[in-house]
Design a protein around this nucleic acid. Sequence first.
DNA 1: TTGAAAGCGCTAACAA
DNA 2: TTGTTAGCGCTTTCAA
Lengths: 338, 338
Amino acid sequence: MSKTAPKAPTIADVARDAGVSVPTVSRVLTGAANVSDEKKRRVLRAIEYLNYRPSAAARALVVGRPKLIAVVAGNTSQYGYAETIRGVEESARGAGFSVTITVVESADDAAVDRAVELVLAQPIAGIIVLKFDPPGVATLHRLPKDMPAVAISGIREAGVPQAVLNEAAAAKELVEYLLDLGHQTVHHVRVPPSRREDGRTTGWRRALTERGIAAPAIFDASWDPRSGREIGREIALRDDVTAIFCGNDEIAMGVMRGLRDGGRSVPEDVSVVGFDDHPLAAMWSPALTTVKQDFAGLGSRAYAMLSGLFSGDKVRRFSSEMPTLVIRESAAPPARNR
Amino acid sequence: MSKTAPKAPTIADVARDAGVSVPTVSRVLTGAANVSDEKKRRVLRAIEYLNYRPSAAARALVVGRPKLIAVVAGNTSQYGYAETIRGVEESARGAGFSVTITVVESADDAAVDRAVELVLAQPIAGIIVLKFDPPGVATLHRLPKDMPAVAISGIREAGVPQAVLNEAAAAKELVEYLLDLGHQTVHHVRVPPSRREDGRTTGWRRALTERGIAAPAIFDASWDPRSGREIGREIALRDDVTAIFCGNDEIAMGVMRGLRDGGRSVPEDVSVVGFDDHPLAAMWSPALTTVKQDFAGLGSRAYAMLSGLFSGDKVRRFSSEMPTLVIRESAAPPARNR
DNA sequence: TTGAAAGCGCTAACAA
DNA sequence: TTGTTAGCGCTTTCAA
C-alpha cells in the first residue's frame, strides 16, 4: 500500500492507457480535429477507466482565455445584490462560464486594494462590479484598464460600459403618484448612496422641484431594517409628515414598524412607499406600494455586455431599463383629503 | 500603430526590464528566498512600470493548489442561502481564497451533471455544497471522491465532513413552546425538504410524538412566500388550527398574510411561528416568534473544515451548532385558554 | 488521421 | 544571493 497521495491522472496517463499519443487525447477532448472512431473509443474508455479530468489550470494557461468571470460587490445577501448576482450567475452558467464573487468591505483604499488583488489573483476573463454603493464605485476605479469590465448600477456614469436601471425616472414617478394623491410634500428615507446622491434620491428631488416644492430634510438609514424602524419612531412624533418615500422595501418595512410602534397607522395617518418590490412587500400589511426592479435581468444584461467585450465586436456601452410602479395598499390620500 | 492586441507582460518581460533572471523575479514575487535589496528594487520598479500581474493560471499549474473554492447551491438569493454564502466568502477571503458560486437548478441528473462539470472545469481546491435541498444532495453524490468537499445542511448524514445547524432540536423546542402555551396540537407548513424529511419537520414530529399527539397532515409550501399565503387562506377556513409552525420566516409571513386575508388575526385566533430569524421577522406585526440560525457562522465553519482538509491533518468530520429560540409576539395561548 | 516537438508563464531544484 | 535547467498538464504547430 503506497503512502503517497494518489495523484490525479494526467492526459499522458490516458494516452498511455489508450495506446495513443497525447495530442490525440487532446483532440478527442476538445473535438478540435478528427480522430478515428477506433482511437476515439479507446481514449474515451481510458478516460472513463482512469476517471480522468483535464486540469483547468493547464488548459487555461495554454488557451489563454479563462472561463471565469468575477463579480465584485459591497454586499451579497441584500435582496437587490443577491438577485443581481443570481442573474449574472445564471447567464454566465448558460454560456459555460463560472463566476467568482468577492465582497469589498468598504471604500477604504486598503479594503478595495485587497479585494482587487484577490480578484486578479484568479485567472479571470472579465469583471462585473456592482456599484450600488461606495465600495463598488471605488473598486471600479482601481481595476487595470486592460481588464474587460462592466459596471452595474442605478445611475449613469461615464467610463466603463454599464447596465443600469433607470431609478431616477422610476422614483420620480413614484413620488409624483404620492403628490397626486394629495400630499403636500413627500419625505425621503434614503439608504446609503453610491455617491453623493443616487438615482432614487435624485428622482425624488426632481419630482418635488418640478412642482415647486422645497425638498425636506432627508432621513439617513443604513441597510438594516432596524435603522428604518428608529426613523419611523422618530417620525411618529411629528405631525407634518404624511408621505414617506423609502430607499428600499426593507427600510420601508422598518419605517412602517416604527410608525406603528409610535401609534401611527399606515396608510391612514401616513403613507409609506418603498423601492425594489421585495418578495415580502406583497405579504406585508398593508401591502407595500413600491417600484419593481428587475435585478436578475440587470445581472443578465451586464453579463451579455461583458461577453460582448470578449468577442471584441463593438458593444453597446450602455443598457438601461425602466422599473415599473406597483401600486398596492400602503399609500393613500392624506387624512384631510378624505 | 500595431493592430495586434497589447499582450500582457510576462515574468520574462519583467526580468529583462530589470536586468535579472526570471527566477529572481519569481523570488521577489513569492518572497520564497532572499534577493538583494538592489535587485529587488529593480524588479519592483519593472513590475510597476510594465504594470505586470502574475498569471494565476500558470501559477496554479505549477504550484498545484489553486486558491479557489467552489460553493454549489440550489439557490443563491434566498435568505439562508445568501447568508451562508456570505459566511463562506468572508472566511475564504480572509485566507486569500476566492470563491465561485454555481447553482444547481434541479436534482435532475442532467442539471446536476452540468453544474458539476462546470465546477470542475475551474482550477478549484475544494468544494462546499449547500445541501439544504434535493439539488444539493444530488450534487454531493456526484462529486469525484478525491475532491476535498464539505457539506452544509440542517441534518446530519454520513459521508463527507459536514457543518450543520441542529435544526431538529431547535424545532422541537419551538413546538414544545407552542404546546406549553396550551395548544392541543401544532400544524406544520414545510418548505421543500432536502430529503424525505428534514430537521425542522423531524423536530416538530418528535415534539408531538413525545406528548402522545398524532402529527396532523403537513402543508407543503414552496420557497415563495405566496405559497404560504395560499395555505394561510386555506387554514383561515378551518377552526381546528390554533398553532402553526412554518418551515421558515418568509413562509410564515406569507401564512400570516393569508390568515389575515381570511379574517383571522395572529396571535389572537391562531399562533404562527417561523424559523431562521430573518431580518424582517422583528419588523413584522406581530413580530415573529422564531428560531435564530447563524447561517453566516455555518458558512465559516464549513470553510474552516474544508481548509483543514487541505492541510491534510485529520479534521473534525462534523460540526454542529444549536440555533436559539427567539420569542416575540406571534404566538400566544389559544383563545379558549385566555 | 496521427505523432513529435514546441511552448503557454510560472516555480522548484540544483549549482555556482 | 543568483542563474541555469526542468517541468507542471495541456494545446498547437508542423510533418509525416
